Simulated assay, not measured.
Amino acid sequence: MDLQDKVVLVTGGSGGLGEQLCYEAAKNGAIVVVCARRINLIGKVKEQCERLSGKDAFAFQLDVAQPESVEAMLNKVQTEIGRIDVLINNAGFGIFDDFVSFDMAKAYQMFEVNVLGMMVLTQKVALMMLESNSSGSIVNIASMAGKMATPKTAIYSATKFAVLGFSNALRLELKPANIHVMTVNPGPVATHFFEQADPSGNYLENLGNFVLEPDKLAQAIIRGVKKHKREINRPHLMQVASQLYTLFPHVGDWLAGGLFNQK
């Protein structure tokens, strides 16, 4: 898939991986639509995308947990741009804590953002693609936590397991319409995500070389979009561990509760 002049919409695009995905899409000649709640930050991302692509870019405020916000944003897209060729569902957050003491109000919020809001937006964009009889791509940023849960990620892992299950079924449903669905399962990425997930900062420090750089991961994701890959898993060692988890559950529990349990 050539991204030249394609419209790429990225949620959670105000910083971290989402911001880097916007820049990488722009470098490939895409018309980038930056969406996030933090309207004070998406303007600078839009401007940098325009510098990188030499094309117009757009910035729209979006709270994926609010259906009316999704509707308002898509109305602006249809009015000002007209279509979406690639949707990258990147918005999400996590909190690492023991389940028995977890604030269930936060659990509801996590499902609203990571799962339900993503589904609402994806359904509307998929319908737009189907109605225009155009091919397209949908990218859902899941997590290695959706393949191999570790202690203190019960709620977060549950949301990402849901994203994976949803994506796998959606891929089969949309394939006849030439709409491609790709899932991305990263391990820990060096972004502001962990300011909320693990305020102590110990998790990233303990993981060392397992931590991914957002710009390099963004490059791999955009390459995956262009090549219509089914799934991207990083880092590779965690991918191997997740496969062991499926094939040898007892070994998987040992890895999840030991080597990869750094919280």
Rank of each mutant, 00 (worst) to 15 (best):
M1F: 14
D5T: 14
V8C: 07
L9E: 04
L9F: 13
L9R: 04
V10M: 04
T11P: 14
G13R: 07
S14D: 10
E19A: 12
Y23P: 08
Y23E: 06
E24V: 08
A26M: 06
K27F: 03
K27N: 01
V33N: 11
V34S: 00
V34C: 00
C35A: 00
I39P: 15
I42H: 14
K46C: 15
Q48Y: 10
Q48I: 14
G54H: 11
K55A: 00
D56V: 14
L62G: 13
L62R: 13
E68V: 11
E68A: 13
S69Y: 06
A72Y: 09
M73K: 13
M73L: 15
L74P: 12
N75V: 15
V77Q: 03
I81C: 05
G82A: 07
G82T: 03
V86A: 03
L87N: 07
L87Y: 03
N90K: 06
N90R: 07
G92A: 06
G92V: 12
F93W: 00
G94K: 06
I95W: 00
D97N: 13
D98W: 02
F99G: 11
V100L: 10
M104P: 10
M104T: 09
M104S: 12
A107S: 07
Y108W: 10
Q109N: 15
Q109Y: 15
F111E: 15
E112P: 13
V113K: 05
N114Y: 06
V115A: 05
G117E: 07
M119V: 12
T122Q: 13
M128T: 09
M129S: 04
L130D: 01
S132C: 06
G136F: 03
S137H: 01
S137T: 00
I138E: 05
V139W: 01
N140K: 00
N140Y: 02
N140P: 03
I141W: 00
I141C: 11
S143N: 04
S143W: 02
P151K: 01
S157M: 06
S157T: 12
K160R: 03
A162R: 07
L164F: 04
S167T: 08
L172C: 05
L172G: 03
E173F: 09
E173A: 05
K175T: 14
K175V: 11
K175M: 10
P176S: 04
I179K: 07
I179F: 02
H180M: 09
V184H: 01
N185I: 01
P188D: 04
H192N: 13
F193R: 01
F193M: 10
F194W: 05
Q196S: 13
P199A: 10
P199Q: 13
N202L: 15
Y203K: 01
N206P: 14
G208E: 09
N209L: 12
F210I: 11
V211Q: 13
E213R: 05
P214N: 07
P214A: 06
K216I: 00
A218S: 01
Q219H: 08
A220T: 00
K226G: 13
H228L: 14
K229V: 08
H236L: 07
L237W: 11
M238H: 12
M238N: 14
Q243S: 11
P249D: 12
L255T: 09
G257A: 10
L259E: 12
